[in-house]
């Protein structure tokens, strides 16, 4: 039998290394969470080197989805692996509600002065630095009357059974639901109306992310779908017969919300990073690479891109936004209801 004393000695030896591990943590590199694919590539090749050159801070990226970052920050308890969070505003709102974020120190983000209206949260609780508007995309060879408004999805019979929508796990679906409530009901939280109207569109194809919508469009399973400009302009670059329009009621938008993680330990660098992201040149670069709409008024959109990117400059006001901080209380319920009623 191993003696109890031996065991305790081993435990003591193991725990003796813990404070040392704590000290090691202080020297952890500044970690920037970002998404995979072209995003990771751009961050690695352009953005991070640029950030390091501009600020002298070394950084490394961690690739995942906004939801993964949430899980890691939550699991980190009082020691988050990140000091900055990037994710859609509705996801950021969840963590904010749980107290993981602290307000931005605007004095450390001078570039935020150029933000378009609506991109800075109330009380500086966060700001959206990367904007990908969502319009109505369609197959030019499969649609006779191009859509003009969101309501065409309901009104134009040629779309019936050929619509693609995001599934509820994607922010796009929540945006669309709230837009539906706003269009047909008492407001963007009128979920009863929203669900009733979305059910009218059944059967439709559901996609987990924009790439899947694009694939459905390309396969012809779907003739029309709400998608972001980023995805559609990339399809057009490959020669696909797709077009995207600005609905008369305004556009929706994926907005990457940037927040300071209260439990992170590199908050100064996090502010510097957000400030660098808002730099007009960086914003223009991202517009060229991702077809995102610059969030900073000072950023210039190239003449070649201007006609393809209708939501920029003054047109940024066409973005319809919703309030997410209170939505977190019904978010789980909405997702559950979607599963049950839509499938």
């Amino acid at each position: 039998m191993p003696s109890r004393r031996q065991f305790l000695a081993a435990m003591a030896a193991a725990s003796a290394t813990l404070p040392f591990a704590g000290r090691l943590r202080a020297q952890t590199p500044f970690v920037i969470p970002t998404y995979g694919g072209t995003w990771a590539k751009f961050w690695e090749e352009t953005l991070v080197p640029g950030f390091t050159a501009a600020t002298g801070t070394a950084a490394q990226i961690d690739v995942g989805l906004g939801k993964d970052f949430v899980s890691k920050i939550r699991a980190g308890g009082d020691a988050s692996p990140y000091s900055v969070f990037m994710g859609n505003e509705n996801i950021a709102a969840t963590l904010r509600a749980e107290g993981f974020f602290e307000p931005l120190d605007m004095s450390k983000i001078p570039n935020a002065a150029g933000l378009y209206d609506g991109l800075l949260n109330a009380n500086n609780s966060g700001l959206r630095a990367i904007v990908s508007p969502i319009g109505l995309a369609y197959r030019t060879d499969m649609v006779q009357t191009p859509p003009k408004a969101w309501t065409d999805l309901w009104d134009n019979p040629e779309f019936a059974g050929r619509i693609g929508l995001y599934q509820i796990g994607n922010t796009g679906a929540q945006l669309f639901l709230r837009m539906t409530g706003k269009l047909f009901g008492s407001g963007d939280t009128d979920m009863d109306t929203a669900f009733a109207k979305v059910k009218e569109l059944l059967p439709f194809t559901q996609a987990s992310w924009s790439g899947e919508v694009a694939a459905s469009l390309m396969r012809g399973d779907v003739a029309i779908a709400p998608v972001d400009w980023t995805e559609i302009l990339m399809l057009q670059d490959k020669g696909a017969p797709v077009e995207i329009v600005v609905p008369t009621e305004g556009v929706l938008s994926y907005e990457q919300s940037f927040n300071i993680v209260a439990t992170g330990d590199r908050k100064d660098e996090a502010h510097a990073y957000i400030n660098y992201l808002l730099d007009p040149q960086v914003q223009s670069n991202m517009a060229d690479v991702f077809y995102t709409s610059p969030a900073n008024r000072e950023a210039v959109v190239s003449d070649a891109l201007k006609p393809r990117l209708p939501i920029q400059g003054d047109a940024m006001s066409k973005i319809v936004r919703f309030e997410w901080d209170s939505y977190v209380d019904i978010a789980a319920e909405v997702a559950d209801r979607w599963n049950r009623e839509i499938g």
Binding site: K67, G169, A335, G343
Partner: peptide, 20 residues
């Protein structure tokens, strides 16, 4: 998709999508 959703998918949806 939603028609073929299994418990594993639902659990991940609860945990990862809905943060429940």
């Amino acid at each position: 998709g939603s028609q073929g959703r299994t418990m594993a998918v639902l659990v991940v949806q609860y945990l990862v999508d809905s943060f429940r």
